[in-house]
Simulated scan of single mutants.
Amino acid sequence: MKPQYLVLAIAFVAPASAGAQEQRTPVSQCQAIAQNTPKATFASFSGAAPLTPAVSEGEDVKLTFLGHSTFEIETPGGIVIATDYNGWYRPATLPDVVTMNKAHTSHFTLTPDPGIKHVLHGWSDVPGEKADIDLVIGDAYIRNVPTDIRFSYGLGGSQENGNSIFIFEIAGLCIGHLGHLHYELTDAHYIEIGRLDVVMVPVDGGLTMGADSMSRVIKRLRSSLILPMHRRGPPVEAFVSMFGKDFDVANAPDDSITVSMRTLPKKPLIYVMKGLQ
């Protein structure tokens, strides 16, 4: 039976100072707690209004597949975000925000264009610490959920919190980019993530996780729109074959899709962008 979810709503008390807005932690509209999760604690606090993204007049979010694991996300308010930005795959206009992961050099660059206002690393440069992203810019709220990674190139071992799942909350949508996900998610991860209406998922079949393991993650997330990415080697059909009649599959005519809360598919849809076919 599919677990029922309750929305976790937390408002933080802001200090009464000129810089109060910058000091407050934004509140996610997408996080949820499963009722049957062991030791889960429901929280509700009152106080000053939470820090939230600006409300834009539009509701459409445009996602464009640029290559490998880089998507351009354009908000209704005109904020441009590039995921797993490596400097090779670039939006037509300079992005306001770029996110990065470091499993391989194809997912980050240490020399981004200096004109990019926000460069968000999915790892911490301080040993033993987690990356902690809570950014409100325009009509977007960006946060992260750290995950462990394997060391690259057969060195063995793993690194705790070496990368991040990035979550973009825009126009009511919860959009997730799984990055270079190496291990199946735990209950704690799913709680931190909450609801994902749209998810970008690597389908390489081994460099991240095998198709069977990755499909279990996607089935648990139960997102309305699933956008495959990061295909190296096996055809995308190897990933798609893991899903049954509860999921629809479609090949996109081009490399972008515009979506809103009103236009989300009623049934989970695996939507394969043209550049990945």
Rank of each mutant, 00 (worst) to 15 (best):
K2T: 09
Q4Y: 15
L6H: 14
V7Q: 05
I10M: 06
F12D: 13
A14C: 15
A20G: 13
P26I: 13
Q29H: 02
C30G: 05
A32I: 12
Q35V: 00
T37L: 01
T37H: 07
P38D: 08
F42T: 12
F42R: 12
S44E: 14
S46R: 11
S46P: 07
A48N: 15
V55W: 13
E57M: 04
E59M: 02
E59F: 07
K62S: 06
F65T: 08
G67H: 07
H68Y: 11
S69I: 07
E72Q: 08
I73M: 08
T75A: 04
P76N: 12
G77Q: 11
V80D: 14
I81F: 10
T83C: 09
N86K: 02
G87Y: 12
Y89M: 12
R90M: 12
T93C: 00
T93Q: 03
V98Q: 04
T99Q: 04
A103E: 13
T105Y: 02
S106V: 14
F108T: 04
F108Q: 01
F108E: 09
T111P: 04
P112S: 00
P114F: 09
I116N: 08
L120E: 10
P127A: 04
K130C: 11
A131R: 11
D132Q: 12
V136R: 07
V136H: 07
Y141W: 06
I142R: 12
N144T: 14
V145M: 09
V145A: 00
V145P: 09
R150G: 09
F151D: 03
F151A: 11
S152M: 12
S152K: 11
S152E: 14
Y153F: 15
L155I: 13
Q159D: 10
Q159H: 04
N163F: 10
S164F: 03
I165R: 06
I165Y: 00
I165F: 07
A171K: 13
L173W: 15
C174Y: 06
L178H: 03
G179T: 03
H180K: 13
L181F: 03
H182F: 14
D187H: 15
A188V: 15
H189E: 11
Y190I: 12
L196P: 05
D197H: 08
V198Y: 00
V199S: 04
V199L: 11
M200H: 14
V201Y: 01
V201C: 00
V203P: 10
D204R: 03
T208P: 08
A211Y: 01
A211L: 02
S213Y: 10
S213A: 09
V217P: 08
V217N: 00
V217Q: 02
R220P: 08
I226C: 01
L227P: 07
R231G: 09
G233N: 05
P234K: 01
P234N: 03
A238F: 13
A238R: 10
F239N: 07
S241I: 11
K245M: 08
D246F: 10
R262K: 08
P265V: 06
K266T: 05
K266F: 01
K267W: 13
K267L: 06
L269C: 08
I270E: 06
I270K: 04
Y271H: 02
V272N: 01
M273Y: 00
